[in-house]
Design a protein around this nucleic acid. Structure first.
Lengths: 322, 322
DNA sequence: AGAACTTATAATCATGTAGACTATAACTGG
DNA sequence: CCAGTTATAGTCTACATGATTATAAGTTCT
């Protein structure tokens, strides 16, 4: 990341009172072939970003510029995610403050754009424990659970030990609890605190990291992606944002697969259809498609008009009960 | 990207690359005597705020400092609200960028603190159309509706006219629609666009503002408060944050009145009790209170333990159906 | 062509919960 | 003692949701 080193180096002579640098950082999400992906640059370990400059009218417009320049991808839907501004968040403690205003953007892949140094990476390469579409992934019970328990028991006092076990149990659904897909950030924080991800390594020098769970990302980018996942998994339930990720025309199963990809769990098919249809979020195009074998499916499109009719309630997820 | 061209005027001598000012700004909320209030300084038109300085470890800690210094009030619960960073947001177009990271804080009044130049102001002085506890307030039908229709019909093309009417109808529940208490921000934006609030005045010089709805606030502080209200009204439904506003011990009716104050609408009493009790959010202290006449009520306290047991689902609001 | 398989679509059933409403209990103030 | 106020319990109903089954309409393989 070149624009964080730049500031410190140049200003060696004159130290400004408020040495602040404001970055815009984008988590661009698309769902490609039922796989939720994030757009990266570099070694697939960096999110698109750039300094917030005076010529930008708004952070959103600045962000669009940076992403398009770095990845060739134009952005549609954008929402502010969080502003990260803690001092030592970049690792080494510098005298310069870095503030990152992060945004969540939703798009679709296609758009040609075999751009230079960028690519789509599945969420689940960074967070292998988050994909429960084929049941609980092995890494949870085989690796994370023992390691988290080990970490919990490593605390000096009994209160902390119990508290850590509790947190882990709630976040990961241990001890007959249910998996809650929205707790992505809490899970990442646990895994981080327990020293099970690479970026946490620098904190404790003596920690032998025999396990590194999930692919690495630069600085705190992985935390930012975790924040995005949590936000998106929550938001699809009360706002119709999934459609930002869909092609103009789609089948109900494709829509379902997309929601499943995002939430990381399976949905009951008839119930999903019922919900979608009775909410009048979509309308038939009248045409059908015969792809993927089986009975041809009706094609639907998103009813943009719905947004003018009432405050829409988004895609409820018929998820399995207890 | 050369962001040095922009910073021209002030920096005649030493041209700084990014002339940025980062402010922390707090919306401190408490509910006093069933009235939701926000903490202000100055002429009750300014939110506590201050520059984000290098010595602050995190924006949260910086904010605590500023608020305590300006109002004498220590803060408990804090959550980030939004980062405002558009160029011309402060009114006069300056060559300097102002970024405001805003936070929502929840407290209780008491705490002694007859501090210098600060005070609690009811939300509804700034947003008189938001309080529906005694039915739809007159200002909505008598004033806002005609003025908004007027504004809508003032658009040049038919499409815009229809769109404006639609937005107003949805936001304010005209034409037999239901009032949705969470649309506070949309409502403020409409009222602002229609030129019905003082702070919108400067935009159009020729606008004769015969009506100024609600009390004025400096810069875009009123928008920030509107954002807070919307966030809080939404959040109490899925997270148990109301208890941050309650004294350690309270009756169920007091709790209900607090929720009603925040949401701006009345709640069915037996249903509210049922929800609260079956969620195990509270527990009886065993004592009763005889205040306010009538049968003495059980006193309850918040079960903090619930937070360690499961991802709590907050206070569902039994609001009137269609 | 027929069998086996895949996907689409309709319909049913059972359960739980939310909203509306009624009734009774226990206190205060005149 | 009566009127008024608040607390608390309980009931009834409509509806939404999760689970399940059945049927329709294609494809692919043999």
């Amino acid at each position: 990341m070149d624009h964080q080193a730049a500031g410190t180096r140049k200003d060696r002579g004159a130290v400004k009172a408020d040495e602040v640098k404001v970055d815009l950082i984008a988590v661009v999400v698309a769902v490609n072939d039922s796989e939720p992906c994030v757009l990266t640059i570099g070694q697939a370990d960096t999110l698109p970003s750039g300094p917030f400059a005076l010529e930008h009218r708004s952070p959103q417009s600045g962000l669009r510029g940076w992403v398009e320049q770095q990845t060739g991808h134009p952005l549609g839907y954008i929402e502010q995610l969080y502003t990260f501004a803690d001092r030592d968040r970049i690792g080494a403690a510098r005298q310069q403050r870095v503030i990152s205003i992060s945004y969540l953007a939703l798009t679709r892949k296609e758009q040609a754009a075999g751009s230079p140094k960028c690519g789509w990476q599945s969420w689940y390469e960074y967070f292998p424990w988050e994909d429960h579409r084929s049941g609980t992934p092995p890494v949870v019970l085989d690796v994370l659970r023992p390691r988290l328990i080990e970490w919990a028991d490593g605390a000096s006092d009994a209160a902390t030990r119990r508290e850590r076990r509790q947190r882990a149990a709630i976040a990961f659904g241990f001890d007959d609890r249910h998996w809650n897909e929205e707790l992505t950030l809490q899970r990442y924080e646990l895994v981080y605190e327990a020293g099970l991800v690479q970026e946490a390594g620098s904190r404790r020098d003596a920690t032998p990291p025999p396990l590194v769970a999930g692919k690495f990302m630069v600085a705190d980018h992985r935390r930012i992606v975790a924040t995005s996942i949590a936000r998106l998994r929550s938001k699809i339930k009360y706002r119709p944002v999934v459609f930002e990720l869909m092609p103009p025309v789609f089948t109900l199963l494709q829509l379902q697969r997309t929601v499943e990809a995002l939430s990381g769990r399976l949905i009951n098919k008839p119930n999903f259809r019922r919900l979608i249809e009775q909410q009048e979020l979509v309308e038939k195009t009248g045409e059908t498609t015969a792809e993927t074998g089986g009975r041809p499916a009706q094609l639907y499109r998103f009813r943009h008009a719905i947004l003018d009719e009432r405050p829409v309630a988004g895609t409820k997820l018929p998820l399995t009960r207890a």
